[in-house]
Nucleic acid binder design. Structure first.
Lengths: 224, 224
DNA sequence: TCCCCTCTGTTGAAATTTCAACATACAAAA
DNA sequence: TTTTGTATGTTGAAATTTCAACAGAGGGGA
């Protein structure tokens, strides 16, 4: 368990919880680590939400697949980030998404009830974790608002530019990598992959962006 | 203040807080009531988030308007529901949405910091309110997931049917009223109003639904 | 009653997306 | 090295949406 201390310490769930308390906390919470191969699911659409997961290594994608097989990409999760926390906190009986490993990955699962209920050992950290969870869940809300902001645009061109500008802003540079391949980006933008490729090609020819696989560079921030 | 007790008691923010404590709590939280005319804003896009609002009377709409004036409808809020809580809890400096009164309405504003910081009076309710807030913010997450589920559909037909089926499910009846007029529904579904009207007309002629203003009735749950 | 304004429905052309298919590049496997 | 498979780019036709404009139905006020 110790080898995960670095990522756990930077995990917002344990913010303001002393190092010496962390080991005790993990034991009290009955935290367990699980490994996943690329494509395996930590959580499946329709299942009840019981666990909060902390990404330790690798990355995961939050996706939803509808009745007709159309896939929608919600978000990408990297080490230190939480998964399932909103559904567990809301106590939903059927989560609306699946969470899949996008590469070999490890996650630490914690029973959500063990966080909110003080244990018989009268551990001190429960309250701090609930405060932390509140901030994390609120921040997740912003991530969803961002996706809505991008996908509410009406054309592939506008969606792509909105997404790229947002990434550039968050990355603090006009050159950056995104966590999605073409199909996944299309699923995030809610457009057709072929249409997305065509749009990227057009922007590339116009000299607006440079795009190589998942590496992008924006030359002109605005479409003048 | 007493005249709002009924709605405050059913507000999830005060769940499991004793009646006798509520008056004290409101005072301690420095809660104040504000009135709004139709169209007035409680909160404007770009402002910092400081307050949590509780809808007392009337209703509000969460909307976002982009650079080109395209409006996106996020949600509708009725008495007892909270507004701004996610942004306040996340401590964002620029909220991504505006919250507008969709009719004459009243809201109670509470400084978010007063909820999380125990006061000098050593009030008991702070902890309970944080627990409640966590559940509320997590539930708001589900509302956003729902909007994404609906708007991720590719055609106006699919979006409309997905929305109507969801409303029917939540209302527990195939006949129900929605809180939006045509333009607002189009803004929620992220489609053109004229295209939405055309689609509604088509479904009406096909006998799939009945639609009169904001009152809908679904005849055939599935499009066979 | 008449007028004005808002909401909803309609329409047809232009723009855009979807869909299905295929070409190419590249990396991993044999 | 050759083969195989995946990711990406391209294309043209069909389907759908957007856009702009207008018509009709009410409702509210003068």
């Amino acid at each position: 368990m110790e080898k995960y201390f670095e990522v756990l310490c930077m995990c917002p769930l344990f913010r303001d919880i002393a190092h010496w308390e962390l080991t005790k906390a993990l034991h009290c919470l009955n935290a367990r680590v699980f490994s996943f191969e690329k494509g395996e699911a930590v959580m499946n659409e329709g299942e009840p939400a019981k666990y909060v997961g902390i990404v330790l290594t690798g990355s995961f994608q939050i996706v939803r697949t509808d009745f007709f097989g159309n896939r929608s990409m919600i978000a990408n999760l990297v080490p230190g980030e939480l998964l399932g926390e909103s559904f567990a906190c809301a106590g939903v009986e059927a989560v609306p998404v699946s969470v899949l490993a996008s590469e070999a990955a490890e996650v630490m699962l914690i029973d959500c009830l063990k966080i909110s209920h003080s244990c018989s050992n009268a551990c001190q950290f429960h309250q701090q974790m609930i405060d932390n969870l509140l901030q994390i869940v609120a921040a997740k809300n912003l991530v969803l608002h961002q996706k809505i902001e991008v996908t509410s645009k009406r054309t592939t061109h506008e969606k792509l530019m909105a997404y790229l500008m947002l990434q550039a802003k968050q990355f603090g540079s006009l050159e950056f990598e995104i966590p999605y391949d073409r199909q996944e980006l299309a699923d995030y933008l809610e457009v057709e992959r072929s249409g997305l490729s065509a749009e990227i090609g057009k922007l590339r020819r116009q000299g607006v962006i440079e795009a190589d696989r998942n590496r992008f560079k924006i030359y002109k921030p605005f479409d003048v």
